[in-house]
Design a protein around this nucleic acid. Structure first.
Length: 225
DNA sequence: GCGACAG
DNA sequence: ATCTTGTCGC
């Protein structure tokens, strides 16, 4: 059971207004850095499902070299915060942290089923978790929160097009499967957009979502793999 | 003021 | 996110 050491810890029992203030306070702490792929052995996929006022966070640790799940955990509890576009982390992080504490060991990279910097205040769920743990994190979302895809996105697997918001490239629309709707990848923390896209594409071998996120979604929704 | 809006 | 069967297309 790893002991999570939270950097920049803060209260979670806050109002939407206070939540926005916290995001503006932490957003400047997001760092972009190249990912040392040779040092990446495990990537954790995270997802949270909701049913009957209860949230269930699931974590699946995927070994990139063995191409297999090496650990998993689930945590369920009361829904702590309503769903408010732009404030998703205040609803999901309180469930994700206790789930992570159940792992045998923490992963090298965190992959979230949400946005990172492709957020109105450049501080989506992937950034929030990344900054709190001060670890590499990226967001792989199924739809757009803010911004628009510029240019044409090819139909071939691996095609990409920038996701731009207010003149700033905040992410990339990435086609992980031919003729299938793309996923939207963005920086969470300590990774570059380029590397985040590479990792997402590399791990999306069977479904449009990368294996870690796909499996975490399955575990969260069904309660088992 | 009106519409958009991760999960 | 969740409610839910079959159906069209690759």
């Amino acid at each position: 059971m790893p002991t999570l050491d939270l950097h920049h810890a803060h209260a979670w029992d806050v109002s939407p207004t206070e939540a926005v203030a916290i995001q503006r306070e932490l957003a400047p702490l997001v760092r972009e850095a190249p990912l040392d792929f040779d040092a990446v052995r495990t990537v954790a996929g995270l997802d949270v499902s909701v049913r009957d006022d209860r949230v269930r966070a699931a974590v699946v640790v995927y070994d990139v070299r063995a191409k297999a799940v090496v650990d998993q955990a689930i945590w369920e509890g009361p829904t702590p915060f309503p769903y408010v576009p732009g404030l998703l982390s205040f609803r999901e992080v309180p469930a994700i942290l206790p789930a992570l504490e159940q792992l045998r060991a923490l992963p090298d990279v965190y992959m979230l089923d949400a946005q990172g910097r492709a957020h109105p205040r450049r501080f989506g769920l992937a950034c929030h978790l990344g900054v709190l743990l001060d670890a590499p994190a990226l967001g792989v979302a199924k739809s757009i929160l803010v911004g628009r895809v510029e240019g044409e996105l090819g139909e071939a697997k691996g095609s990409g097009a920038p996701l731009v918001h207010k003149g700033e490239t905040v992410g990339v629309a990435l086609r992980t499967r031919e003729r299938v709707k793309p996923v939207y990848v963005s920086v969470g923390h300590r990774v570059t957009l380029r590397d985040a896209g590479r990792l997402a594409l590399r791990l999306a071998v069977k479904y449009k979502l990368p294996q870690p996120t796909h499996l975490a979604h399955r575990l969260s929704y069904r309660g088992e793999l």
